[in-house]
């Protein structure tokens, strides 16, 4: 029985899932296809509904 988790995709969803699991004490392997994580959100200027900066 292995308690590690594999998260595929390092966009906002993958990052949040990884952080939650890590905080719960699980070891997470986060696999991202591109050279850096962030996903589409990293390309956004500001985000609705608050118009805060995306990063």
């Amino acid at each position: 029985m292995n308690r590690d988790v594999l998260v595929i995709g390092g966009g906002i969803a993958g990052m949040q899932a990884s952080l939650d699991l890590a905080e719960m004490g699980f070891t997470v392997h986060l696999v991202e296809r591109l050279p850096t994580i962030g996903g589409k959100m990293a390309q956004l200027d500001k985000t609705f509904p608050t118009n805060d900066c995306a990063l």
Binding site: S18, L21, V31, E32, L34
Partner: peptide, 12 residues
Amino acid sequence: HPKIRLLAYSEV
């Protein structure tokens, strides 16, 4: 995060 192992530029 010490519990997160990042494998960027990688594919399953």
